[in-house]
Design a protein around this nucleic acid. Structure first.
Length: 794
RNA sequence: GCCGAAGUGGCGGAACUGGUAGACGCGCCGGACUCAAAAUCCGGUUCCCUCCGGGGAGUGUGGGUUCGAUUCCCACCUUCGGCACCA
């Protein structure tokens, strides 16, 4: 028996799989019958960082790998692709530092990570590899952009947007954390700029619906996060009249029932009313207040504001309310104006207190309307409906819905991204680049240094084009797209990666998608996951594909932490797999990361854990070799070891497939290996060994393959997944627990086919039980079949 | 403030449908093998008490339901996550 040496056997089997093209899965022919046993296994694609993979990646992809092997071997056709989220700032910043091209840096990083991935032995169909920086990919990103543009779902507008002063580019709302850039941590500024937006708000209601296929399931917490982000509020829009100006001012409110309690009216500093009609003092205030970020405005403890000099008429009772301008009202929510009800809104109450404005109670302690004329006495909710109905009749209001969600601003003022296929023509305006001129290649430039405007603009030759529409002088759009545009459709390209006629064929995506199981971090709940859903819903509307959701089942892995904190470059606690793979092998590293704990919870990486796993693998290695040296039993085997093997099959399969729990199967396998190594001479030891090797294959495919060969077999990766023999799971004896008043007093083995009466009689004979009953009256006897007997006394 | 998740040995965690709390691993303690070490193997390891037979307590806290609660219900505490001057 050779010593277990992962560094010899692992590369050997990796070569075997590669030569056998073991994990390549071709697409079905058009019109081929739909096979309902196909599975699309996907984990979020990696960003090719210069540091290579970290343990979080190892966890993520190993989990996907276990599922892939189990499904494959259970008779499913599994597609499991891989690719690279290759555009983005880190490569560009590295390019500035190193004086090289971002492409060179990115491709170098990809090569490093690809090598790491192959060394870990993951079952990936490398034939489907795609990279978002490849013109063969971003050609179709551009093509999709044009589709969205054509349907009015991509548009340009001037708006105050988030600007990262460090990265010198716009960033999306979704990637701002507490007012700071999620990527670099700089404090985000507000800038007024003309930017490209995707109209995600057009799908606000659809995004609240999860139109999943049968068997699809999303975690409740993810849906909650998305629901909070979308922030749907039902309410009413009410028109207030400014008589002296002949103007109607709409407000949004969720509380139309409190309309009689409105005692003043407030507009946001950015509201057009201010510039057009407000007093000089109010305009001066608005100019100052409107320039501040929402976060700073919110941080103010005392409310500020100025009277504009005008009044608005409450449509329900004709009362004239003074119009104020105040920065606690936000322009980009609702209509940018509110009816203020100080009695029933905390913020309005504070404002009224500060400026001595009147307060009118309109709801009593029983929740009924008061001071509301003919609506008095109605329960608040009913009263609200009645008030809206009355406004509708007068044409002064209607029921409506407001959302917190904003459109996705996706143009970026940096180099390393997908160019926007648009030309700006003096006479024609915004003109799309014709489809047959795609891709618009990313031009070469001299200097990547961010200067607050797009580096692409520095390439004069590239910038100046003739207008595709009129032939006149025109300029290209010099911005690039947010990398989240690239990753909003990569899962569609994966299934048809070599298509040069279209981003994908509809029959191919309709065959494989929605993704059967998606795995990735919950940090993308309001970003990537929402964007991808938006893309798919829109493409479904364009009739490009036949489904409404990209991901049927979603799972979020926990963070792999070190020293109690999430791994991050700034904390210097990022750890990759390399040193563990070199010392203990890929199999041990894979097992170790999954053995750390429940996959959906944060876990602490400990170096000592891998020692235990290595011990286990050596023990497995030795036990299997010992078993293999002995002659196989002739005829069927039975006994506790056979039963243990079947129990392990049931446990491992159920945990992985149904419970999505990856650490407990390892415990079960440790028990089985320990049982069989205790007695290699047991005639059932060979069956137990074969079972253990077969079951561990998804976790540790290399050692499994090697030991499978030691046991005289071949090509374990394509052997059917073991199925537990139900009859073996039924035991003929079990351990009966006997309780007195719910406390365990004795336990002993009994025959499984005893009747309840016999169990009770047997339980009663126990001297320990007798001692606790101590001659007292047994008031009640509870029997749980195959488990316990409980005597209630006293 | 609103919404959500979670609290179990020294540590990571197990206990899936209300039925033996602590599987499995780490760490630690003791032993075997060895000149020695590594590796390996065996035994022990929730806490307290013990006449070594056992006994008592115990899953964040306090109640409740139940023959029986880590599991269900109520209240609270702590931690983490999302939203938040969103009308």
């Amino acid at each position: 028996m050779d010593r277990y040496d992962p560094n010899t056997i692992e590369p050997k089997w990796q070569r075997v799989w590669e030569d056998a093209d073991a994990f390549h899965v071709p697409n079905p022919e058009p019109g081929a019958p739909a096979d309902d046993r196909h599975w699309y296994q996907l984990e979020m694609l990696p960003y090719p960082s210069g540091n290579g993979m970290h343990m979080g990646h190892v966890l993520n992809y190993t989990m996907g790998d276990v599922i892939t092997h189990v499904r494959r071997r259970s008779g499913w056709t599994v597609v499991r692709p891989m690719g690279w989220d290759a555009f983005g700032l880190p490569a560009e910043n590295a390019a500035i530092r190193e004086g090289r091209h971002p492409r060179e840096i990115t491709e170098r990083n990809i090569a490093t990570i690809r090598t790491q991935m192959k060394r870990l032995g993951w079952a990936i169909d490398w034939d489907r590899e795609v990279s978002s920086h490849d013109p063969a990919y971003y050609r179709w990103t551009q093509w999709l952009f044009l589709k969205f543009f054509e349907h009015g779902l991509a548009y340009r507008k001037e708006a105050p947007i988030n600007w990262c002063p460090n990265d010198q580019t716009v960033i999306a709302n979704e990637y701002i954390v507490d007012g700071h850039c999620e990527r670099c941590g700089a404090l985000v500024e507000l800038r007024n700029m003309t930017q490209w937006f995707f109209k995600t708000t057009a799908f606000a209601d659809e995004l609240l619906e999860y139109e999943l296929p049968p068997g699809g399931e999303w975690p409740e917490r993810t849906k909650t996060i998305q629901r909070n982000w979308i922030g749907r509020s039902e309410g009413a829009e009410i028109l207030f009249r400014v008589d002296e100006l002949g103007l109607d001012m709409p407000v949004f409110t969720t509380r139309p029932d409190t309309l009689f309690g409105a005692t003043f009216f407030v507009v946001a500093p950015e509201h057009p009313f201010v510039d057009a009609h407000a007093s000089e003092e109010a305009q001066a205030y608005a100019l100052h207040a409107g320039a501040r970020r929402d976060e700073d405005r919110a941080a103010e403890t005392v409310k500020t504001g100025v009277f504009t000099g005008h009044s608005a008429t409450n449509p329900i009772n004709g009362e004239r309310l003074p119009i104020w301008v105040a920065d606690y009202v936000l322009m980009d929510y609702g209509t940018g104006a509110i009816m203020a009800v100080p009695a029933h809104d905390e913020r309005d109450g504070e404002f009224a207190a500060t400026f001595g404005l009147p307060v009118v109670d309109v709801i009593d302690e029983n929740g009924r309307l008061i001071n509301s004329e003919r609506f008095d006495g109605l329960p608040a909710e009913e009263g609200g409906r009645a008030i809206v109905a009355s406004l509708v009749e007068q044409g002064r209001g209607k029921s409506t819905v407001s959302y917190r969600l904003r459109d996705w601003s996706f143009s970026r003022q940096r180099y390393w991204g997908c160019p926007i296929p648009i030309v700006h023509c003096e006479s024609c305006g915004v003109v799309p680049v014709p489809e047959d001129e795609l891709p618009v290649l990313l031009p070469e430039i001299e200097d990547y240094q961010p200067k607050g405007k797009s580096p692409l603009a520095s390439n004069e030759e590239w910038m100046h084009v003739s207008c595709p529409r009129c032939g006149g002088a025109a300029l290209r759009d010099a911005d690039t797209m947010d990398t989240f545009v690239d990753s909003s459709w990569y899962f569609l390209r994966y299934v048809d990666p070599h298509n040069d006629q279209a981003p994908f064929d509809r029959y191919v995506v309709d065959y494989w998608l929605p993704v059967s199981q998606y795995i990735g971090g919950i940090d993308h709940a309001t970003g990537h996951l929402l964007y991808s859903r938006f893309f798919v819903k829109a493409m479904n509307d364009f009739e490009m594909l036949g489904f409404r959701e990209p991901f049927a089942r979603l799972f979020h892995q926990g963070w792999v932490q070190m020293g109690g904190t999430k791994m991050s470059k700034t904390k210097g606690n990022v750890m990759g797999p390399d040193e563990f793979v070199a010392e203990y092998g890929a199999d041990a590293t894979r097992l170790c990361i999954l053995f750390l704990g429940p996959a959906d919870q944060d876990m602490e990486w400990t170096d000592s854990g891998i020692e235990g796993i290595a011990r286990f693998l050596r023990r497995l290695w030795r036990a299997v070799h010992e078993v293999a040296e002995r002659a196989p039993a002739d005829g069927p085997v039975e006994g506790p070891l056979v039963r243990k093997a079947h129990e392990t099959i049931a446990k491992v399969s159920d945990d992985i497939v149904r419970r999505f729990q990856f650490h407990t199967p390892i415990s079960a396998l440790m028990e089985l290996v320990s049982a069989l190594s205790d007695d290699p001479d047991d005639p059932a030891a060979r069956f137990a060994a074969e079972t253990a090797v077969s079951l561990i294959q998804p976790y540790a495919p290399h050692i499994a393959e090697e030991l499978w060969q030691v046991l005289g077999h071949e090509r374990l990766w394509e052997q059917p997944w073991p199925v537990a023999d139900e009859s073996q799971l039924v035991q003929d004896r079990f351990e009966l627990v006997v309780q007195v008043n719910g406390k365990v007093r004795d336990r002993f083995e009994v025959e499984a086919d005893l009747s309840e009466d016999e169990l009770v009689a047997l339980a009663m004979t126990s001297p320990r039980v007798q001692a606790h009953i101590d001659g007292a009256q047994v008031r009640k006897t509870i029997v749980v079949p195959r488990k316990l007997v409980n005597f209630v006394v006293g």
